[in-house]
Simulated assay, not measured.
Amino acid sequence: MSEPLLDSPQTSGAAPPAAPDFRSLMSTFPTGVAVVTTVDPDGRPWGMTCSSVTSITTDPPTLLVSLRHGSPTLAALQQCSAFGVNLLHHRGRSAAELFSSGDPDRFDRIAWRGGILGSPHLLDDAHAVADCRVDRTLSVGDHVVVFGEVLRIERHQPATPRPLLYGLRQYRSWSAADPFEGDTR
């Protein structure tokens, strides 16, 4: 039986980490960058930058995204029960920054078109988009975890994308020249 590496708050009596400490910890774990998009019942587009995206299962193909309570994108997504996950390529940094801002006219500043469920596809900034139907949601703390069944995948150029990454509070791209530095296989 393995021993715990760290005392947990439940066993040590210590308080859980403060939000800034937790954010600092998670900033050391680089992740891909996506923009989650949807439309409201009136057809108005909504979207936000999201690094909390993961695959859940391949049968049926399902993604998980985590959006904060109070987000207008979350509200629209819950009303229409559909969303798109735009996976950004290395030239998509400006879109990532735009969709993490409070700019109310963000869709006027980029090229996009609606996917099969109406959710916007970011034409110049995403190397691929997954169109999803909401399967279920789960409220956890200050976020809502949304499970989406992937109904369609659309790939954009380039054919071999260099994904946009985020870590240590910085955007970077995957180096095509040496993607597996230190790989000893």
Rank of each mutant, 00 (worst) to 15 (best):
168 L>T: 12
116 I>Y: 01
75 A>Y: 02
65 V>K: 00
87 L>E: 08
102 G>L: 05
36 V>P: 01
40 D>L: 03
56 I>P: 00
111 A>W: 11
86 N>P: 08
11 T>H: 05
158 P>F: 12
96 A>P: 02
80 C>G: 00
161 P>D: 08
16 P>L: 11
22 F>N: 05
114 G>T: 03
116 I>M: 11
166 Y>N: 02
92 G>H: 12
123 L>S: 09
65 V>F: 06
67 L>M: 07
180 F>E: 10
136 R>L: 07
58 T>N: 10
138 L>A: 10
22 F>M: 13
122 L>V: 02
176 A>Q: 08
164 L>F: 14
53 V>P: 01
120 P>L: 06
134 V>E: 03
43 G>L: 07
177 A>I: 14
120 P>I: 05
93 R>M: 15
77 L>F: 00
95 A>L: 00
47 G>N: 02
141 G>W: 14
69 H>K: 12
119 S>D: 06
32 G>Y: 01
68 R>N: 05
11 T>L: 14
142 D>H: 15
54 T>W: 10
72 P>C: 04
96 A>Q: 03
142 D>W: 11
120 P>G: 06
145 V>G: 07
177 A>T: 15
40 D>W: 11
28 T>K: 09
117 L>D: 10
128 A>M: 09
4 P>V: 10
100 S>H: 08
64 L>A: 05
88 L>Q: 07
62 T>H: 00
62 T>P: 00
12 S>M: 12
162 R>F: 09
27 S>A: 07
40 D>G: 01
3 E>T: 08
15 A>C: 02
45 P>M: 03
103 D>Q: 11
150 V>L: 04
9 P>N: 05
122 L>Q: 08
150 V>W: 01
5 L>R: 10
89 H>R: 07
104 P>Y: 13
4 P>A: 09
117 L>N: 15
98 L>T: 01
26 M>W: 12
84 G>C: 04
22 F>S: 09
126 A>I: 13
34 A>C: 12
117 L>A: 13
158 P>Y: 10
